[in-house]
Every structure is written in C-alpha cells, then in structure tokens.
Design a protein around this nucleic acid. Structure first.
Length: 559
RNA sequence: UGUCCCAUAGUAUAAUGGUAGUACGACAGAUUUUGGUUCUGUUUGUCGAGGUUCGAAUCCUCGUGGGACAACCA
C-alpha cells in the first residue's frame, strides 16, 4: 500500500517533449534526430549546456540521435581552436554525438540551392551597398522598398553569381538576396541576404570559397540535408522561422521544423560569447577558462562535475519565458554532488599557533574518516603533535554569545583528536596574538572518549612540523550585481573586484601531498576544492569550487 | 506604436476545465566530533478587467507589463 513511496518522481514533460511525443505518436516521425549547432567562434558556456542537455537529452529519452554540427559560415570569426574546445566540453558533459558535421561540408549544395532559387526567380544579385540595402529595408513600422536590381533576368543573375564565386568582385560589392517580400511586417522576410563575398581563409575549406552563405540560408538547409526532425534553438530565432520554412518549401527539401526555447540567464554573470570575450580581452579574467567564468571549460577547471551541471539543467526546465536563474541553484547542485564524493581534508588558511603545554614531545597518528556520507570510503591517518595551527578566526579573546569556538577558558574539540582548553594568550609586543597555550584532555581522544564532556565546537587543525603548504584560490561571483546587463552604463563596471582572493601559503595535512586532478576535496569547514591545472610537483594549487553553507557567517552579519 | 513571443511565491518550475504543488532561497527548530550533512516546520503566488462554464491558472476578448526583430553575425 505504501510502495509508491520509493518510485522516482514522475517529471512532467516540457513543451518540446510534448511535441516530440506527439510527432512520434502520430507517425510524423519514426525517430528523433536533433542537432547541436555551435558556431566555433568562442567557448561554450553554461547556457549552451542547457541546449546540449535538451538536444542530446531528447534523443536519449526517445531513442534517437544527435549530430554535432559546427555552424561555420563566417570564416573571419571562426577558428579550429574553438572547434576542439567545444568538442571537449560536450564530451566532458557526458554526451556523444552520432556525427560530426560542418555547415561548410554543405557549401557546394548550398551554392546549388541558391542557383535553384535564382532559376525560380526567387533570388537575385544585388549591387547595392550595405548602407543602401539597410536604407531600403524600411523599419519595423514602415515597409521597405524594392531594390533596383530586384528584377534582373535569370541569366544575368546566374552569370553574376558565378562571377561572385569566381572571385571577380571585392568584398561587399555584391550580395545575393532571396526575393521574398519587402513589405512584410516581419523584417526577416524583407529580401534577406543569403550570400555575401568574403575573401577570407576558412578554417576548413581554406581558400576554396570567397562567397559564404548567411546563417538563414545555411542552417535550415543543413538541418534538411541531415534530416533533422526537431531543430531546437533560442527565442531570438522565432522571427526567422517563417524564413526557415520558406527556404525548405521553395527548395522542396526535407521538412525539418524549428522550435524555440528561452535561453538561460544566471544571476551575477553575463551569458553571451561576445561579452565573455570582452572580459577575456580586457583582462578582467585570465582567459576563457578562468574559474570565475560561466564557460564549461572554466566550470570544469573550478571543480564542477558534469553530473551537477546535468542535474542543474533538469531542475531549471525548458520554457519560453525570459528567465534569470538564481546562481544559488547551481551552487546547490554542485554542493549536493560534492558532499557525496569529496574526500575530507584539514587545511588551515590563516594560521594561529596553538601549543599544547601538557602534550609530550613527538607525535601520534589520529584516524579520520574520508567521507562521513559514504560508508565505502575508508579513513586516513593524520599526524597530531604538541604544536598545531588552527584558523585565526576560530579564536577570540573576547567572544560574543554563541561563539562556539576557542576562547579563554573555553573548550573545543579538534576534529578527530582531542578536546583542548585555552589557558593563556601569548602576545607580541604590538599587542597582537602570537600564539595560545592550551591543555588537552588525554581521555577525550576521538573514538575513545571517556571524558564525558560535551563541547559545542569542533575545529580543523594541522600539525606544525608535518604541515605542507599549498596555494589556495578563493573565487567569488564575477559581478557585484545580480543582473549586470540591466544596470546603467557598461556591464564591465560591475565586475566584482574581490572575485579572486589568493592565499599563497595555506597549511594542509600531509596526505594532500598526493592530491590528484580527478579527485574532489572538502577542506573541512572551508568548502570544496580541487587541484588546479597550474599545480606542479613543487607547488600545489587548489581552486575553491564552492563554499560550504555558512550559517555562522549569516549569524555574524545579523550582529 | 508593425509583426511575433511571453506572463503562477524572491527565483525557477508543475497543475493540459475539477483541492494551486515542487525545488532553490529565506526564516525557525531538532540532530551533529564539519556552525557542513540530515530531518521537521513556517513564509510568500495565478498581471488586471470583462466573458464562456456547475466550475477558469488553464478557453475567449480587451487592457497592462516584459521581451525579440531593422548585422554582408549566428
């Protein structure tokens, strides 16, 4: 009777899944073929991850396939470096494409499509300048005017188009436009340009072409060539859909259908390749993979797991309304995963020396669990000695109420070791605290505590003679404001100046000497960390992926 | 003031004419050798006005608000 309880929660379908299920049920399509179509002019960001999850997820869910297709129709901005980066990111996210295609694979077919249109009197070569074309285009509220070249003969158009391809004209001298409707209320339909001249080296076709198709003339046709059943893109292409359908109809090719969803926005960051590139170029960050960036490569470097990003994508859903997702949801997803898999380690960032006056010379090894959430992980030994470092902020000479840490006369437990009590504060000449002298309770050892004492606080620590040092990089949100784009002025004015704090020498327990790149760590009471790619044999560098939730910090703020 | 898209707690997301639910956040408490985790509880919502209907978040109309579109970018 109560068995329903453990059933996985049934998730309702998003609007695209509904369309797919309907198409499958009605027999419109026998299977699903989607595509992920990045332009190789920058790195993928978390917003793209939503599209990747959607496209690949749809195929996975309904037993279909997904092609990876690089939309490489603009040679001046596109580079092979980006192609490689994008492929790596998709693989890392855990998805596998059926075919790796390029819009440039179809240049010859696309050229023929344009010839077909010309022959049907549905396209023409226009000698007008860019400015003239813009002027004749009209405005959203006023119709456009026909170009004087609109009525050229088929033969002349064919010849001119062939000459364009042959390289007889300079950039911008001529374009090919589709003949749709200069009076259409939809601006996209006012004789859109479908081919332009660019004497530029293409990352794949080299110098074979000097004319390149525009997005609208490449995307839908590429979908059709591949027999994509559901071509999913973002909302800004809604107004392009009539054009998408128009080309498919006029060319009588496979009727792929375009569906649009709202792109994702995240608080405290920006989400466009153009703006991210600005941050890189203006050196606000060290590069596309600076861990503060919302790019996939940066998230990976920062320690995010692909699982957490996929979970995040499931949670945010798919819809058509503008949205800005609270970054705390992303943080929740990564904490939830890391809590399950991260190995616990003790690391002191800002050391305060503690001398245990009644502890003998030498040291002992104490045992500590690697992950209390996972019974399968074992434990490790940590050296404990008479001289220790604790976190400076874990001691206060005059503590406020509810300060459960170390203070004169106050007792705390040292994690996996003993209860200690503060007896004396040793100060420097300037009055600052040099070290504190404590006594430990031998009968309070972890696992064999017969002291009967209950203490409120437990601190992390390291043994001074055994500690190793490491650099620790603490990251915070890239922007000071939730939505930099909605603020006055340049979005770059709102970059958070404290988004990176570097601790050049933190003191870590010796087991971290063997830290591995594929392992995740929780530095107790500090946050989740991973080894940074800048690390070397001589120098360990850790990135903070995300902090732990800190209710004490909130308490302090309240005053 | 053209065409198109959208509107449910602070943020997201369900309810597909029949009890407005879930997650994150926030707040409070319990547990805790991490002020973590876990658990419990509280809080806040259908943009507005009409209409259809026994019944409307859902369908219709008109408003209001937000967004997209005028690159030889994608």
């Amino acid at each position: 009777m109560t068995e329903v309880k453990n059933q996985p929660e049934e998730r309702s379908l998003n609007f695209i899944e509904e369309i797919v299920e309907e198409d499958l049920k009605s027999g419109k399509h026998e299977s699903v073929l989607t595509r992920f179509p990045p332009e190789p002019n920058g790195y993928l960001h978390i917003g793209h991850a939503k599209s990747i999850s959607l496209n690949f997820g749809l195929a996975l869910k309904y037993g279909g396939k997904t092609n990876l297709r690089f939309d490489d129709t603009n040679p001046v901005t596109e580079e092979t470096e980006y192609v490689d980066g994008i492929k790596e990111d998709i693989k890392w996210l855990g998805f596998t494409w059926a075919n790796e295609f390029y819009a440039s694979d179809y240049f010859e077919e696309l050229y023929e499509f344009a010839v077909t249109l010309i022959k049907e009197k549905l396209a023409y070569v226009d000698d007008s300048s860019s400015e003239e074309i813009a002027a004749m285009k009209g405005t959203p509220t006023e119709p456009g005017k026909d170009s004087p070249f609109r009525t050229r003969s088929i033969e002349e158009n064919l010849q001119l188009f062939a000459d364009m391809r042959a390289g007889k004209y300079k950039d911008g001298e001529k374009v090919v436009r589709a003949k749709v409707d200069m009076a259409s209320p939809n601006m996209q339909l006012r004789d859109p340009i479908i081919y332009r001249i660019k004497h530029a080296h293409h990352h794949r076709t080299g110098d074979k072409w000097c004319i390149y198709p525009m997005y609208d003339f490449a995307h839908g046709q590429s979908d059709a060539i591949e027999h994509i059943t559901h071509s999913i893109c973002t909302l800004e292409f809604v107004t392009h859909r009539p054009l998408y359908d128009w080309f498919i109809e006029k060319l009588k090719i496979f009727p792929s259908k375009q569906y649009e969803f709202a792109r994702m926005n995240l608080t405290y960051t920006v989400m466009s390749k153009r703006r991210l590139l600005q941050l890189v170029n203006d050196k606000h960050v060290s590069g596309w993979d600076d861990p503060r960036m919302p790019t996939i490569t940066a998230l990976r470097r920062r320690g995010y797991t692909p699982e957490s990003i996929r979970t995040f994508n499931e949670k945010i859903g798919v819809q058509k309304r503008d949205n800005i997702i609270d970054v705390s949801l992303l943080e929740f997803c990564i904490r939830e995963h890391l809590n399950r898999i991260a190995l616990r380690r003790l690391v002191v960032f800002d050391p305060l020396k503690v001398i245990l006056t009644n502890y003998p010379e030498g040291f002992e090894m104490v045992r500590s669990e690697n992950n209390p959430e996972d019974e399968n992980t074992d434990s490790r030994e940590i050296p404990f000695s008479r001289e220790l470092y604790i976190e400076r902020e874990d001691f206060m000479e005059n503590p406020p109420k509810k300060f459960f840490r170390l203070a004169p006369g106050q007792k705390v437990r040292l994690k996996s070791a003993y209860i200690i009590q503060c007896d004396e504060i040793i100060k420097e000449a300037d009055g600052s605290i040099k070290e504190i002298h404590c006594s430990y309770l031998p009968e309070s050892k972890s696992g064999a505590d017969t002291s009967g004492l209950k203490v409120q606080g437990t601190l992390h620590w390291v043994s001074v003679p055994h500690a190793i040092t490491a650099e620790v990089r603490l990251y915070d949100r890239l922007f000071r404001v939730e939505d930099p784009m909605s603020e006055e002025g340049d979005f770059k004015d709102y970059v958070n100046p404290d988004s990176l704090q570097t601790i050049s020498a933190a003191y870590a327990e010796p087991s971290l000497r063997n830290a591995k790149f594929d392992e995740r760590y929780q530095f107790l009471r500090k946050g989740y960390f991973c080894l940074d790619k800048d690390s070397s044999e001589e120098k360990l560098i850790f990135n903070r992926t995300v902090t732990l939730k800190d209710t004490w910090a909130k308490e302090k703020k309240k005053g």
